[in-house]
Design a protein around this nucleic acid. Structure first.
Lengths: 233, 233
DNA sequence: TTGTGTGAACAACTTCACAGCT
DNA sequence: AGCTGTGAAGTTGTTCACACAA
């Protein structure tokens, strides 16, 4: 996971990482509700819509401030605004996607991208044959132009969708160019200097975690379990 | 997130979730090393290659058993075997991918898939025009045939790469068909019955988390007084 | 010496349960 | 009466530091 944020000095006025990771889920649920006719939500209703329990919702939201009303709940629109602001979604973020294989294409065409505050400002590849081509309405540039692109288009977030062997080099170039947040899809451990945030999404790891639990299911759970723990197979 | 471990509450012979999530990372690093000429690794070397600290490596590996040698380290091949076994990768898992848009295609063509123990046993879509077409060497089937496919091909893992609005229905069908592990890429909260494991990968959430930290960087790090004085409004 | 394995301290996160506001 | 906000208790995960084996 990314390094822990915590400001350089002084008391940590920060929101817990676990909470930050759930705010986007709440936000999505709230936006869904706001399209209906819901003026307010209770922590309970929001919890159900978000797949967590209500105590967690209340604790999480309490980190943003006291935005609820006792006996009533939270104002949907106001909460949407507060969460958006906290997540930095009231401004636009320029994103560069590097690597335009299958995954890069999928990401470029991913709707939820532009959805909230994220704008694909550059598509980058090393394949000269692809440069100039348009994907999702954006012209593909060459990796060698990265410095210029990042500077000119104020890109602060880089998405790596290259093969594993190219990922660290691409990451280094992104950082040198001035990108300060990196989302890595390549199945490799990357390192970045302090001050740069790094997150990863790894399909293979997710599958292996499922495999672990799946295996546990078929193994008959210990001896003498009543009624033959009917493992459906 | 996925529900906590299924199965009866006995003595917890289990490995902590946090450890399970790191085992695939260690495994990848080890496989990389085994291609070189490394007979053994220290927890320190493995830690560096995995992007964690060595205490964590030792604690994690200790959950598998005492497979290291004091003063020496861990035998690479043996560790690979033990981790693979623990993760259930010594057997093959049949996977179905549902939804063959950009993302589904990307997943189907993703190399690391077949990599370790995972086999694409079915590709499924609702678009009749796509049915019959071959993607990544596998013929696309229709969603209506899911029950048969899951049964005939002993599929236990389902990957959802559909639009959000279709995801819960697809998930329900997968579960009814007999799938017991689901990996969801659709940006929506799914619910599954007990006994079914659910994990999600959500690009939009990852970006929003980066956005949160990115925003914090630009904010001058010392406006911590604001909320400190009583009633925030 | 070197580097594992682990009890113990520490830190983060979750859940409980209820006081207090509306 | 209903629902938030939050101390306190409980749980899980991380790091320390050192005994001990090779």
């Amino acid at each position: 996971m990314a390094q822990s944020r915590t400001g350089p000095r002084g008391t940590d006025r920060g929101i817990p990482e676990a909470t930050v990771a759930r705010l986007p889920v709440y936000l999505r649920a709230l936006v869904g509700m706001s399209e209906g006719a819901a003026g307010t939500v209770s922590s309970d209703a929001l919890a159900v819509a978000s797949g967590v329990n209500s105590a967690k919702v209340r604790k999480d939201l309490s980190h943003l401030g006291s935005y609820g009303t006792r006996g009533v709940g939270y104002d949907v629109q106001y909460l949407i605004y507060q969460i958006s602001r906290e997540l930095g979604l009231t401004q636009d973020w320029a994103v560069a996607i590097v690597g335009l294989g299958n995954l890069g294409h999928a990401l470029a065409n991913y709707g939820g991208f532009v959805d909230r505050g994220f704008r694909i400002a550059a598509l980058v590849d090393t394949d000269r044959a692809r440069v100039g081509e348009k994907v999702a309405g954006v012209v593909v540039s060459h990796l060698d132009d990265l410095d210029r692109l990042v500077a000119e288009r104020a890109i602060s977030i880089g998405v790596i969708a290259t093969p594993a062997h190219a990922a660290q080099d691409v990451c280094d170039r992104l950082v040198v160019a001035g990108v300060t947040s990196v989302l890595n899809f390549a199945p490799v451990v990357l390192s970045v200097p302090d001050g740069v945030d790094l997150r990863k999404v790894d399909l293979s790891i997710e599958l292996q975690i499922l495999s672990f639990h799946e295996q546990r299911k078929s193994v008959v759970t210990d001896l003498g379990d009543r009624a033959a723990a009917g493992a459906p197979r």
